[in-house]
Design a protein around this nucleic acid. Structure first.
Length: 610
RNA sequence: GCGGGUGUAGCUCAGUUGGUUAGAGUAUCGGCCUGUCACGCCGAGGGUCGCGGGUUCGAGUCCCGUCACUCGCGCCA
């Protein structure tokens, strides 16, 4: 007989009655009836009820064990009486009568309880993540993640993509997020950077002629966190040669739609080939964001023209100063109290906006200060244009275009949620396309890249030379699902002359480009295919599929909101010797921290890895 | 860096207008119980009310500061 088990805790059924079996697992739950003891034995696969009575030598041993101890049970499979069958358990028709027990590992008092769905503080959960991960929900999330990744791999290879690895220790590059830095021992004063994404390497693989690349790629960005942002995360990174934007869309839509259909648990998914394509300018107008949640039916409109002259002086003044007025409909709000509208305004102020105006309408009657001052005639005209009914309210976001769009976007979400308009049980995908190539940086008072500088401008060199830079679009696109940006990608700029020109517009010289992107620019001078790709975020995909509001719920060992590993103690102080090795001397606060750390903390116990 | 929320027993939470010895459930420990499956019953231990200061005859409760966690803004593809 095997040392630990003949079956898993999910395997036994009526067909095995009478068999002598050996099971191993964790003591999930105990029910002690004095002369008879029930133990739910749990492993990765399931739960089997173990029973011991006074005839069994296992009884006192199991009785004394705390929950989550690990045991091996030798016993006999018995059928349960009809009345004792547990229909909630796949193994509920049988139980194993314990003849003997071996304690593999005793558990102390637990910081959190595995057999309960109770919510524990994240701090506790992360510190004892190995216990937390035994709990049903997180365990299932991590297994879902595994299945999603397996499925993505299969779908990509089936489409002729090949999987590659790229370096983790790379060079810091100037654009984008802050890099995680790794000091070099062999090269004093020099640093590696962990990849924010394998961007250049995947492009170089295209230049190397591999045609279709993908990778489940670890990415690192040293920026502040959000619920959907971790400093280390994974992307389904891919790149293709000799492709147009449409080819990239055609390649990835079936992969994403397919994996969502496979794991959505019956929720509807935008079919492959039908992802709406929304230009950036349109999404900023209609949804007030570049990651619109299309489950929300509300659409923002620009009504600036209605307020060039208006009895409502505030809007007239804003419009006169070049500002915009945007509106969000609040359908069927005739029975909402004044408090509902005032609360929205309070919310907007709390969010740091100037305020959210509103008009109420009850049975055709307009209400609120804006309606009063703007006049009934003007309101009727406005409502007619917007196609609004006699019981529909309206929220107003006014200000500089950027601010008005942002407030309108936030208000659209808020109104949709408050009115219960968000469609449930669906995943709504869309592409955001035609991102601007450049934008005006108000702080630096200059034109700068609005996204990745390596995207091909639409119209290529001709556009760069003859168009207002702020009008130029890029072959740059995002995939958005339910308001989450899942992916960002582009058709790349593989022509050195166009790249020099694009950088020139953003105020960089040929020498700047050569110095910062030498590898890439050299490669493009030695025969580069047109190419493009994208990189869907795997953690966010799993988060959506698992219906979790937080990315850490789908990462086995996540860093907390302050980028610390509470279990392993990262980031940690290191010994003076380690610092010397990498030519680093601490000062100021950093030196104080190092000094205050206990000797044990800075003692390095060498251990061999695998 | 900024704003919001939270912080009371190992854990989840209650705690009134500032008023006697800060409670419940769960976990732990002890006892009872032969068919449970969130078993049940009896009992016990367990508290720097995050920390520091202030107001007050009196602070878990009010005020100021600070720390931790978290959500958002800034930042970030």
């Amino acid at each position: 007989m095997h040392a630990y088990r003949t079956h898993t805790c999910a395997q036994l059924s009526k067909a095995d009655v009478g068999e002598a079996v050996r099971l191993s697992g964790w003591v999930h739950r105990k029910r002690d009836h004095g002369g008879v003891l029930f133990v739910d034995l749990r492993d990765h696969y399931g739960i089997t009820q173990i029973v011991a009575d006074e005839d069994s030598p296992a009884l006192p041993v199991l009785d004394a064990l705390r929950l989550e101890s690990v045991v091996t049970i030798d016993g006999e499979v018995k059928a349960r009486d009809a009345a004792a069958v547990n229909a909630n358990l796949p193994t509920g028709e049988i139980e194993v009568f314990a003849r003997a027990v071996t304690v593999q590992s005793k558990a102390d008092d637990l910081p959190l309880i595995v057999n309960s769905a109770e919510d524990y503080p994240e701090e506790t959960r992360l510190k004892y993540r190995f216990v937390d991960l035994r709990r049903e929900r997180v365990h299932a999330n991590i297994m879902l993640r595994n299945k999603v990744i397996t499925s993505l791999r299969r779908r990509m290879t089936d489409q002729g993509f090949s999987e590659f690895q790229t370096p983790i220790l790379g060079a810091s590059s100037p654009e984008g997020a802050r890099d995680y830095l790794v000091p070099s021992r062999l090269h004093p004063g020099r640093f590696y950077a962990l990849p924010q994404a394998p961007q250049m390497f995947k492009q170089l693989l295209m230049v190397a002629g591999f045609d279709r690349y993908f990778q489940i790629a670890p990415c690192f960005r040293d920026e502040d966190l959000r619920a959907d942002r971790s400093p280390e995360f994974y992307q389904l990174d891919f790149e293709m040669s000799f492709v147009t934007q449409d080819d990239v869309f055609d390649a990835i839509e079936p992969v994403l739609a397919g994996v969502f259909e496979e794991f959505s648990g019956g929720k509807s998914v935008t079919p492959a080939g039908e992802f709406p394509r929304i230009p950036y300018a349109e999404t900023m107008l209609k949804y007030g964001t570049d990651k619109p949640d299309l489950r929300n039916p509300l659409v923002i409109s620009d009504v600036t023209e209605h307020f060039t002259s208006s009895g409502f002086g505030l809007f007239e003044k804003i419009v006169g100063g070049g500002g915009r007025v945007r509106v969000i409909p609040a359908p069927a709000t005739h029975e909402k109290s004044r408090k509902f509208f005032d609360d929205m305004n309070d919310w907007a102020r709390k969010e740091g906006f100037a305020g959210l105006g509103y008009v109420t309408r009850k049975g055709g009657e307009f209400g609120g200060p804006i309606a009063k001052n703007h006049g009934e005639e003007g309101m009727l005209k406005l409502y007619a244009e917007l196609g609004l009914g006699e019981n529909d309210g309206l929220f107003f976001a006014a200000g500089k275009e950027k601010d008005a769009a942002k407030l309108a976007g936030a208000a659209r979400t808020r109104v949709g949620e408050e009115l219960g308009l968000i469609e449930e049980n669906c995943f709504k995908f869309c592409w955001i396309v035609d991102f601007p190539m450049f934008e005006y940086d108000e702080e630096l008072k200059k034109v700068d890249f609005s996204h990745n500088p390596f995207s091909m401008p639409q119209g290529e060199m001709e556009a760069l030379e003859n168009t207002d830079p702020l009008e130029i679009k890029a072959w740059q696109y995002d995939i958005v699902c339910n308001g989450y940006e899942l992916s960002s990608g582009a058709i790349r700029n593989h022509k050195p002359e166009i790249m020099y020109k694009a950088f020139e517009i953003a105020g960089y010289t040929r020498e700047d480009v050569d110095a910062n992107f030498s590898g890439m620019i050299e490669a493009f001078k030695l025969g580069a295919p047109p190419h493009g790709g994208s990189a869907p975020g795997i953690d966010r995909i799993v988060m959506l599929l698992a219906d979790e509001p937080n990315i850490r719920e789908v990462i086995a060992f996540p860093l907390n909101q302050r980028a610390q590993d509470l279990m392993m103690g990262a980031p940690s102080v290191v010994s003076a010797r380690q610092l010397r090795d990498v030519h680093i001397r601490l000062s100021g606060e950093a030196l104080e921290v190092q000094k205050d750390a206990s000797e044990a903390e800075t003692t390095r116990v060498d251990q061999a890895g695998e």
